[in-house]
Design a protein around this nucleic acid. Structure first.
Lengths: 214, 214
DNA sequence: ATAATTACATACCATTTAGTTGGTTTATAA
DNA sequence: TTATAAACCAACTAAATGGTATGTAATTAT
């Protein structure tokens, strides 16, 4: 094996194990000693690849947390189609069908936010996490604009509040899922989430007449 | 000052400062040394009142976290009236009007869940936190039942999923608020939350005709 | 008034923590 | 083939950590 690939492999093993442990137990609860023990390496290896623990978790955020939000929640919605179906199907897939995913570990993004947003460090971790949220929000807003253009969504919806509400509720349910392994939490969430999405449908003239009168 | 009142005062000071620091920085990031230094006490005092750190945070949960959920989100909804107004006004009060509250520190309940749900301990911390969520859910369901009886809510709503959705979204937005001090996040949330609540209204016959047809 | 208990304070301990230093092996370049 | 540097190991350090042992002043009971 070439030196470069071995180096990258080692670095990735540290990042992956660190991500796994930190996402479960939290940044401060997971020591570097534990991580290197779990992957069979030493302090020397760790500090060859990372300046310090903060730099390490910064890399975890950009290599794992940010990329997973992109691949699982942003890229799948970067297409045309009915946003109500696109979003409904996506969450159905992630929350209900995908058993492989860490279902009781909450959302890695929220987990990091809770653990790191008031941490003093040289890497702007809070800003990193905010940016991920922001990119996600932008993708949702774009999806909705396309949906409005194509007549799937009402022209009068406020896209930013809607995008935030979707993110907030999803991050909320994933986080609270940490307290239980009852999958009903996700089923129930899906039901109400779809009800909420329906409020974004275009209001037909007849319908609006009665809604406004209520 | 009598001995009993002094003891309770000291214990409360430790709990209050511990709550404040742990809610901000997290359970593992806050040392006992820091807490006692902040309140001007010593290790002897701390370990006179609490068996260990886990017992300490267990007391914090029941003395602060649980009681605050009760006083701020359960008791205010334990009354008759239109649930849509009761819930809308309550969140308006807590998220928008109440500036005194720790607006950028997320939700203490969620913060504890993230930090402690995979912690090995002798105090069933995870169960404690789950119970708080459950009590909250029960209160919301009761509110909705009364709302249905009084004709404010549709008889066909699934109360448990709705209750969970309310809790999930609220805990979500409070938690993600940690990344920013932009109050628009709460304003936008309120807007969409009210839209969601409107889906719980009774469907009038005329309205249902058109909705079903869509 | 005195004994006993309460509510702490002080000093200490073993372990764990993030981080460092210097050495060793392995691959790469000359 | 040999020099060099990359990738990692092993041992170490200082500080911080949760927790303990013992002492003490103030309150309370006798």
């Amino acid at each position: 094996m070439t030196q470069e690939t071995k180096r990258k492999l080692t670095k990735q093993k540290l990042i992956d194990k660190g991500y796994e442990l930190i996402n479960m137990y939290g940044y401060h609860a997971v020591s570097i000693d534990l991580i290197i023990k779990e992957v069979g390496l030493t302090k020397g290896a760790f500090y060859y690849h990372f300046e310090n623990k903060h730099h390490f978790v910064s890399k975890i955020i950009q290599e794992r947390v940010e990329k997973e939000i992109h691949s699982e929640f942003i890229e799948p919605i970067n297409r045309r189609g009915n946003p109500i179906f696109i979003l409904g199907d996506l969450l159905q897939e992630k929350l209900i069908n995908d058993d492989s995913l860490e279902q009781n570990l909450g959302s890695p993004l929220t987990n990091m936010i809770v653990a790191l947003s008031y941490e003093h460090n040289d890497y702007n971790l809070k800003g990193q996490l905010y940016d991920v949220l922001d990119q996600w929000k932008v993708a949702l807003i774009s999806l909705m604009y396309r949906g409005i253009e194509d007549g799937y969504l009402d022209r009068h919806i406020n896209t930013e509040p809607v995008a935030e509400f979707i993110i907030n509720s999803l991050e909320g349910v994933r986080t609270l899922k940490r307290t239980t392994n009852n999958k009903a939490l996700f089923y129930n969430y899906m039901e109400q989430f779809k009800n909420y999405l329906d409020t974004l449908k275009p209001a037909k003239e007849e319908k609006r007449f009665y809604l406004d009168a209520s």
